[in-house]
């Protein structure tokens, strides 16, 4: 009986610690997200698309940058070394564009405005861990997040389309965090 009590207390403590650990991690995550959203504090101009308030805010700054980038690209063609559109990556079970993703999308947008005139399909992909059914919807949200961002960067919406493959087309067939990180992505396929 006493052993049981001790065991129970130990379990309780462990549980409490773990819960605490979880909460902490969540907090950190939240903090990461907040600066990302807060960075472009510049007055938001318009909010065309419906879903993500956060995203619209983030979009605000880059929108102003785009013309700049365009000028730059026009004056210095060498800047675009890569002719291909780069893929972007996401956090687990998330369709929020990370800072890295937004940087890449900005470059992609340059390419799309300057070099590539064809239509582009944005493919949303997930890692193998989530449910395949749910991931089909999540992948689509990832694709749409990128599409909305590109639209705010000045790409005409009618040049972009989205499709989700959920976890059906992994880039890396591995079963570790490195593979999963690679697989949580949007790809940009030029359809001509």
């Amino acid at each position: 009986m006493r052993d049981g009590m001790v065991g129970f207390l130990v379990v309780l403590c462990c549980g409490a610690l773990l819960v605490g650990g979880c909460a902490k991690k969540e907090m950190v995550k939240g903090e990461e997200a907040i600066p990302a959203a807060a960075a472009p504090v510049k007055p938001a101009e318009q909010a065309p698309a419906k879903p993500e308030v956060k995203q619209e805010k983030m979009a605000a700054e880059p929108v102003k940058e785009v013309p700049l980038a365009k000028e730059e690209a026009a004056t210095a063609p060498s800047a675009a070394q890569e002719e291909t559109l780069q893929r972007i990556h996401f956090d687990f079970d998330s369709y929020v564009l990370t800072k890295d993703a937004r940087d890449i999308l900005t470059k992609d947008a340059e390419l799309l405005l300057k070099k590539i005139t064809a239509k582009v399909t944005i493919e949303g992909h997930c890692d193998e861990r989530g449910s395949d059914e749910y991931n089909l919807a999540l992948g689509e949200k990832r694709a749409k997040a990128a599409m909305n961002y590109l639209v705010t960067l000045g790409i005409p919406a009618d040049r972009l389309s989205v499709i989700s493959y959920g976890k059906e087309k992994p880039l890396d067939p591995g079963h570790d965090e490195a593979a999963w990180a690679k697989n949580r992505r949007d790809e940009f396929v030029v359809t001509k």
Binding site: G4, G7, V11, C14, C22
Partner: peptide
């Protein structure tokens, strides 16, 4: 991570069950 609390609950549950 997130499954820890539930595992902990499970332990408690089994203990109560065993006692019962």
């Amino acid at each position: 991570m997130t499954l820890q609390p539930s595992r902990h609950e499970g332990r408690l549950g089994t203990m109560v069950a065993v006692s019962l």
